[in-house]
Design a protein around this nucleic acid. Structure first.
Lengths: 202, 202
DNA sequence: TTACAATTAATAGTTACTAATAATAGGTAC
DNA sequence: GTACCTATTATTAGTAACTATTAATTGTAA
């Protein structure tokens, strides 16, 4: 299954996607897959800041792959898939909706699935051992239908002592379907930061 | 000979132990740790049939990455039990919380389970074929611990055309743990429909 | 045609190995 | 003492999957 005739941007986007799905692909295999030279693939990786295969594998093994940085939630506790995170700042999670999340009759996703995505992402980005939701304001903009993929972006808008105001925007096909403002309380601080921002997530 | 054999055996045993704890150790690092040459470590690994570092890491990575990243809420887990309802007016639902709904570390129930209870109850008391949550204000008063039983009471506070303001109060042991105000939109009226009781959420 | 981006090639150096062979230190057996 | 044996260490050649750098080639648009 060789892919051809791709623009540079398209190729880079695809490389990203492929590596998110399968971090075990070497440059050589990618080159064969996309029918470009190994050097081109390497340049692409460099431009996108994606580390080499061996480092990616180590990340996966250590679970340093963004998910492990999360202290409040373990990976099984996160609804959706966490794809990028900067602790204390922001994060992105994706949820692929299915029929089982929807009302049978309409195929519309039940609101609490969307809230669950937003809420667990919001909690994930708090840099604390224990984080609890206190107050939330939710706004559902558009119905989401089973099969649509939701992209949630959360951002710490304000911090006062142990109180975090987190805003979450959920989109499907570039269109906003949900926004929420959550006030989250951190119960314990885990401030033994080990600087390394990014490389973990791409 | 015996003494040396013993030390060799001891070393190999230790290597095994070290690698079980930390599969990321290279031969070089092991050699430094045990103060033996890299070649000796290699021979030890060979004798014990332990693969090289990179292969060990791949094993670890494949194991951990096989974990299902997308965890969704199961129906039985969120629904709770609808114990009383007056369509268009009010309703009561009960949810027995379990460990699987809680943070492992603290045993505190994840907020979206409580919201799910409140939201699906609120939707179910709306006398409409399709009801969707539009806006919600949530307030978590107290942490709920796994094992506690939650009682949710929902009431239609106001109705304007297809817009319902529903307030939900959730208690555990007579104490309020959550309140929410939800604005729910009915999309179609079901007052004439047969079996007008909501399959929507319950 | 020139200019520039995109792509490919080529080269040297790295890590963490495998595989094979050889050298050395120490003891044992007769 | 010499032959033998084991454990250990060293050496060499070769591998995959890179990084980093420089250079050459191809394509395309002004």
């Amino acid at each position: 299954m060789i892919i051809q005739n791709l623009s540079k941007m398209e190729r880079q986007k695809k490389i990203k996607e492929y590596l998110l799905k399968d971090p075990f692909l070497s440059d050589k295999k990618l080159a064969e897959l996309f029918n470009f030279s190994v050097q081109t693939i390497r340049l692409d990786r460099l431009e996108m800041g994606i580390p080499e295969m061996r480092k990616r594998i180590i990340q996966v093994a250590k679970n340093t792959s963004s998910i492990d940085k999360v202290k409040s939630l373990k990976k099984e506790e996160i609804i959706g898939e966490l794809i990028d995170i900067e602790l204390g700042k922001n994060g992105i999670a994706i949820l692929k909706t299915t029929k089982s999340m929807a009302f049978n009759r309409t195929g519309i996703i039940r609101s609490h699935y969307i809230f669950s995505l937003a809420d667990s992402l919001a909690i994930s980005i708090i840099d604390a051992e224990v984080a609890l939701t206190g107050i939330a304001r939710l706004s559902y903009k558009k119905p989401v239908y089973a099969g649509q993929t939701l992209v949630a972006k959360a951002r710490v808008a304000r911090k006062r002592s142990n109180k975090f105001l987190v805003s979450v925007h959920v989109k499907s096909n570039q269109k906003e379907v949900f926004t929420g403002k959550l006030i989250i309380f951190s119960v314990k601080d885990s401030s033994k930061k080990e600087g390394g921002i990014n490389e973990n997530s791409y």
